[in-house]
Simulated assay, not measured.
Amino acid sequence: MKYNPTRPDDRRKSVVYFSRLNAGDKPFEMRLIDPKRSSQQNRYFHLLLGVLSKETGYTLSEIKTIVKRTVCNEMFIYRKPSLDKEGVENLFLKSSADLDSKQMTEVVDTLRHWSSETLGIYLPLPDEDNWLQLENELENE
């Protein structure tokens, strides 16, 4: 069961449920739920990538890799130790699904700023009227 501790009713229900589990004789598990990025954030991020793909001539996959490796690398690149004796670290790219909602907001803000400043390409905010029009155009291509 999921409970939101910021809601008084959920807090009360969670205490009751925990007491019932704790009084029993069966093992149980408690864990925190990471606030993963929302599906709306993911849709918006991919829309922005689609706009950049259309404007630059790169494929969606190429634009995504460029963004992950250069524009927002601190969010997407992680390191693992080398498998060989040389000790060179291996670099890997995370999926956007591994980001939480705060990180995804930072990625989108960084991407929009970079696109405007570096490429001169304006990327719409999610609440702008032309956002849905762009989405429809990209889906129809």
Rank of each mutant, 00 (worst) to 15 (best):
L21R: 01
V67Q: 01
N130R: 10
S116E: 11
R69P: 04
N140P: 03
D100F: 05
L134P: 00
L21D: 00
I63W: 02
D25I: 10
D129H: 06
N136A: 12
Y17D: 02
N130I: 08
R43A: 15
T6G: 11
S38P: 03
G24I: 06
S14L: 06
K26W: 06
F76H: 02
C72E: 03
T110S: 04
M30Y: 05
E139Q: 14
L123W: 04
G50P: 02
E74M: 11
E128M: 11
V67N: 01
N140Q: 12
V108Q: 01
F76D: 01
E62S: 13
T70H: 15
D25P: 01
L93W: 09
Y44Q: 09
V88K: 14
I66E: 09
I63E: 03
F28C: 10
W131T: 15
V88P: 05
D109S: 08
L99S: 03
L60C: 04
T105S: 11
N73D: 11
K13H: 02
Y3K: 01
W114C: 01
K94D: 03
E29A: 07
L138F: 12
L49Y: 02
V15D: 09
N4H: 07
D109K: 13
G120N: 03
R112T: 10
L91C: 08
S61M: 14
G87I: 09
R37H: 07
D127G: 02
Q103R: 08
N73V: 10
Y78K: 09
G87W: 07
E117N: 05
G57W: 06
T70I: 13
Q103E: 14
G24K: 09
F92N: 12
M104C: 00
L49P: 00
L132N: 13
Y44S: 05
F76R: 01
D109I: 06
L119T: 03
K13P: 00
K64D: 15
L48R: 02
M75C: 08
Y58D: 12
Y78L: 08
N130Y: 09
M30T: 14
I121W: 02
I121P: 00
V15L: 15
N42M: 11
N140A: 13
S53H: 05
K85A: 14
K26E: 15
L47R: 01
F45Q: 06
Y58C: 10
K80Y: 09
L138E: 12
L132H: 10
V107I: 04
R11P: 00
R12V: 01
E29R: 10
Y122N: 06
K13A: 07
E62R: 14
E89D: 15
E106M: 12
I121N: 01
D100G: 13
E106R: 14
E62L: 07
L91G: 03
F45C: 09
A97E: 14
K64M: 10
I33W: 04
I66F: 12
L123V: 07
D100S: 07
R12I: 00
F92Q: 09
E62W: 06
L91K: 12
S115D: 05
M1R: 02
E74N: 10
K80S: 15
R37M: 15
K64Q: 11
L48F: 03
D10E: 00
T56D: 11
L60V: 08
T118H: 05
